[in-house]
Design a binder for these strands. Structure first.
Lengths: 169, 169
DNA sequence: GAAATATACTAGGACGTCCAAGGGTTCGGA
DNA sequence: TCCGAACCCTTGGACGTCCTAGTATATTTC
């Protein structure tokens, strides 16, 4: 979609911030903008790899989560909490995955409010193949060095904890 | 939307990857997933601050870009390249901003294919106030330390260059 | 035990992103 | 010169995300 620009637009934005007297926040602005752009690049790569499987990243994430669920199923509310997305986004994904025969809804045995979702055999087979593709085509050549990965996990992990994502360790 | 989870779901995902024999790519997977989640958190904060101004982040970015444009206007194709989004996304944003009286389209003086976009007086005033709000309410308390910001700019800048975003330095 | 509150899911709508396709304009090589 | 290739923008559609509101079921409170 885009040929390389001669100049880094984020570095330019940072210079503009400094030139306008906002030098005290220019660096965090640049860091945050870089996160936005990096996410966009990575998401595009992932969606490219998943497309042949008829999956989007959102649907893949749900399948992957279910594949690790002990008992093979989860309440939708639990999926929403773990994936950190709005409940309606889960409803949306489940609708499409169920339509495709990859997951199935079932009523909770004791709580009438709750709907459980679990993988079908087809869903389990597909998520296995999709994961193999992502591992070899994206994660194995992420574009980050081992040091980069270390730093990202550390910096972003701290950020997420402070942002209230989790309380853990 | 979400109360803190007791455990970090990304750390759990990493453990699951390792447990399934994908330990060689577990760390980059975790780093990439952390980028996705961090972007989501930051975007939500930004949108919160911009909402009182009737702006979204996409519209704000376009206004900010125009506010720095020498001559006060840019071809839409140039905005698309600099913001690194699809041309139709620019069309979409310009439609809404023009509707709100914040930007104006004008024909290019010599190239009949090109449409120029520029800020109106109202747009210029609004982007100034919105920028002040973002600076003080988001960038000044980003949740990253100065060291974090350094590392992010360095790591993500290298990633973006290698990904073909720019050729610059 | 009944009313009030909380929780779980779904419907409808706004918005941003992308892709595919189409119409208009300009450029460049035969 | 002129005609095909390249470029610019827009339309229409698919998706994911969120929000608000509504329905149904549990839990709490009095």
């Amino acid at each position: 979609m885009a040929s390389p620009l001669p100049r880094d637009p984020i570095a330019d934005a940072r210079r503009n911030w400094e030139r306008h007297g906002w030098g005290d926040v220019a660096a965090p602005m640049a860091a945050i903008t870089a996160i936005m752009r990096t996410q966009q690049i990575l998401l595009a790569r992932i969606e490219d790899v998943l497309k042949p499987f008829g999956l989007t990243f959102a649907r893949y994430e749900l399948l992957a989560l279910l594949s690790f669920a002990r008992g093979g199923s989860l309440p939708m509310s639990r999926a929403s909490a773990l994936l950190q997305v709005h409940p309606t986004s889960v409803t949306n994904a489940v609708d499409r995955l169920e339509q495709a025969g990859l997951v199935a809804r079932s009523p909770h045995p004791t709580d009438g409010r709750t709907t459980l979702i679990g993988l079908t055999a087809a869903g389990r087979a597909l998520v296995r193949r999709a994961t193999a593709a992502l591992n070899s085509e994206v994660f194995a050549h992420s574009g980050f060095t081992d040091d980069d990965v270390e730093q990202l996990i550390s910096v972003l992990g701290g950020f997420r904890r402070r942002a209230g994502d989790f309380t853990d360790p």
